[in-house]
């Protein structure tokens, strides 16, 4: 047993940490409670969990290699309709749940692998945009003055362009390809996050506990990243969740236009674009990728809406 008595400042720090931890736990608990009370956000979460599961398990779930051309391997025809044994497709025919695409590949396997790509696009571009946007917004909001003006005017310039048009312009400059498309979508997403963070920082930096930290001699970095930013996360989470949906849509649009994922990569937008002319002759090739995009975007939008309501204290009475 130690007989050392803790010093007064360390005791205060420990208490401070405990109080913060308690506050944080209770905040998240309240958020979860509110979130779980909303059926729509539960549906969104459920779909996202399913999509994540599919993305991780794609190699085991997919019956075929998504790049495998089945000419000479199976007796299937280009753009063949789905063949599901349970629904009466003859057992001697190979089963293809979503049919065969224009290059005689299994559409179902490509769709499953496409989930990986879409989620990767959503998460990576939003992470990229959040990191850059948060740093820029926090610096601008905290320091103000010429730095704030310079950063926000650049953001205004970026916001002046329609986001998809700017993404197309960036990919046109960089050249088509998935990585460049990710970069483009990430860049056009930055201003939204920078503005959200700046607005939060502007209001939080004037609060008493921040002034107290400053009075106690806390460094700028400590105050900004240890005191202000953790309390500015709420709107960022909401914006980020909704931003994933937008990023997935933008990536699909770029791939549809041939500027994103390049063949033979299985990507929903490019799958849709490649078969757009077959909408009457092979509607399954357009329907399934389109439905997958819609479902994913819907799921993130539902979750984003739910999070917004759950994290907004002003809506607490509504979500009871």
């Amino acid at each position: 047993m130690s007989d050392t008595t803790p010093s007064a400042p360390s005791q205060i720090a420990a208490l401070d940490a405990e109080a913060l931890s308690l506050e944080s736990v209770s905040l998240w608990r309240i958020t979860w409670k509110r979130l779980f009370r909303r059926k729509s956000s539960l549906v969104g979460m459920g779909i996202i969990l399913l999509l994540v599961f599919i993305a991780i398990m794609a190699p085991w779930l997919a019956p075929y290699d998504p790049l495998q051309v089945l000419i000479g391997i199976e007796d299937v025809k280009m753009r063949q309709a789905p063949c599901i044994h349970l629904l009466g497709c003859p057992p001697d025919q190979p089963q293809h749940l979503m049919g065969i695409d224009g290059n005689v590949r299994d559409q179902f396997s490509r769709l499953l692998y496409g989930t990986r790509l879409s989620l990767m696009v959503g998460f990576s571009t939003v992470t990229f945009a959040i990191v850059i946007g948060t740093v820029l917004g926090a610096l601008g909001g905290y320091f103000g003055g010429w730095l704030d003006n310079a950063i926000m005017r650049v953001m205004d310039v970026l916001l002046a362009f329609p986001s998809l048009l700017l993404a197309i312009a960036i990919v046109t400059v960089l050249g088509p390809g998935l990585i460049n498309a990710l970069l483009a979508i990430g860049i056009v997403s930055i201003p939204a996050y920078a503005r959200v963070v700046r607005a939060s920082v502007l209001s939080i930096r004037e609060m008493d506990y921040v002034s107290a930290s400053r009075a106690l001699g806390g460094s700028t970095a400590h105050i900004l990243f240890g005191r202000i930013l953790p309390n500015a996360l709420t709107p960022l989470i909401v914006q980020g969740t909704l931003g994933i949906a937008t990023a997935i849509l933008d990536a699909a649009a770029l791939s549809f236009l041939g500027l994103g994922a390049q063949p033979p990569t299985p990507e929903w937008g490019s799958m849709l674009g490649a078969e757009r002319n077959q909408v009457f002759t092979a509607p399954h090739l357009v329907f399934f990728p389109g439905f997958a995009i819609m479902l994913t975007v819907l799921a993130f939008n539902l979750l984003g809406d739910g999070l917004r309501d759950a994290l907004d204290p002003r809506l607490a009475h509504v979500s009871k």
Binding site: A150, V157, A169, T172, G175
Partner: peptide
């Protein structure tokens, strides 16, 4: 700042026009 914004805008336009090739 307005001037700075104009420079950034002009830079973006120039980059899009001559900064590289589509292919």
């Amino acid at each position: 700042y307005a001037l700075l914004s104009l420079f950034v805008l002009a830079g973006l336009v120039l980059a899009a026009c001559g900064g590289g090739a589509a292919t």
